[in-house]
């Protein structure tokens, strides 16, 4: 979801060919008490990389320096990877760029930072850190594999596959969980490339505009994104584990439908902005309705029993749990983040 983590230190070590792990390297860089070149020099020394800062009398002399080296401009540091007669290739914020030598040297302050790495240069405890990094990647794959296996087991053992409407409902609920998760992440100010990509389909910045309105919260207490995640999450769980209660799910879906009219009305006439993710949620609600209708599940829904109320309690309990977690994950919550 988030962009790959990087710092100038991890970029520099990669270009120097020094064995390192991004997680340890970036953590070390960010935990420097004083983020200066002197701190970077000390950090590089722990990797077995010696370095020196030089003040050049003439910035045009950069072609005489061994690459890579770090060059200072008034807007920040860049890593120069190659210099020839006319061009300078450099890396800025992990992005490779090429500029004419004249333009590059004119923008420099004249301060450069040159490193000398030998073949033995390596991150301290590299093997342990690398193992941890691989284990962390493996954890995500194991989680994904187990989720798919459990989903497959539930579909087969509970006979979800026997009716097209239940198969479609499973897919819709999974899509609902995904879209609601993106909305929750946006509400918690967690940057997500996927959320931004979906949001820009109808109107760039529309999701942020809508989520910033007071109407994005139910009585200012629960975000609608949290309600959506609870709704689709519990619906999916119930459908997979207790498919006998599909009539209760159908009734809950029916009760939620008027919300979609209000949401679209609000976006069009009040906020005058379109939130693509919110529209996706409304569409999924209606698609679910047509599946319940097509599968004739609504016919049995109008005589709710205890199961319906237990299901309702599950929705509320999960929604409250998500609501309680939100302040802990909100990136704009300075009070919690400072602790």
């Amino acid at each position: 979801m988030a962009a790959p983590d990087y710092t100038i230190l991890s970029d520099f070590l990669t270009i120097l060919g020094v064995r390192h792990t991004d997680s340890y390297t970036n953590r070390s860089f960010r935990s420097m008490p004083f983020p200066t070149m002197f701190g970077l020099k000390k950090l590089l020394a722990t990797y077995g990389v010696e370095s020196v800062g030089l003040k050049l009398a003439d910035s045009d002399m950069i072609d005489r320096l061994p690459t890579p080296f770090i060059a200072q401009t008034s807007r920040g540091m860049v890593i120069v990877t190659a210099v020839d007669a006319d061009t300078v290739m450099y890396v800025t914020q992990s992005v490779e760029e090429t500029a004419t030598k004249g333009r590059f040297s004119a923008a420099m302050t004249g301060n450069v930072f040159v490193a000398f790495a030998d073949d033995n240069a390596c991150e301290p405890d590299y093997a342990v850190h690398r193992f941890t990094e691989i284990a962390n990647i493996a954890k995500k794959w194991v989680l994904a594999a187990l989720a798919v296996a459990l989903l497959g087991y539930a579909i087969v053992s509970n006979g979800i596959y026997r009716h097209i409407s239940t198969v479609l409902l499973t897919i819709i609920d999974i899509a609902g969980v995904y879209i609601s998760t993106l909305l929750v992440m946006k509400s918690a100010h967690i940057k997500s490339r996927h959320a931004d990509a979906v949001c820009s389909v109808v109107q760039a910045g529309g999701c942020d505009d809508i989520l910033a309105t007071p109407a994005s919260k139910f009585f200012g207490i629960f975000g609608w994104s949290e309600v959506g995640l609870a709704y689709f999450g519990v619906s999916l769980g119930c459908l997979l584990m207790f498919p006998d209660h599909i009539d209760d799910l159908a009734l809950c879906n029916l009760i939620c439908l008027p919300f979609s009219f209000w949401s679209v009305w609000y976006q069009k006439f009040k906020a005058k902005s379109w939130c693509t993710l919110c529209l996706c949620v409304q569409s999924l609600l209606w698609l679910s309705f047509f599946c319940y209708l097509g599968g004739s599940w609504l016919r049995q829904a109008f005589h709710p029993g205890t199961g319906f109320f237990v299901l309702g309690a599950c929705y509320v309990a999960v929604m409250l749990a998500i609501n309680a977690i939100m302040p802990l994950i909100d990136r704009n919550n300075d009070y919690v983040n400072s602790r």
Partner: peptide, 22 residues
């Protein structure tokens, strides 16, 4: 004309923390 920077001068070269792509 080039000279080696002192630790003090290196300490003056601060990382801003801004993610500006130059």
């Amino acid at each position: 004309g080039a000279v080696e920077m002192t630790p003090l001068e290196l300490n003056d070269m601060r990382f801003s923390g801004r993610k500006t792509v130059i």
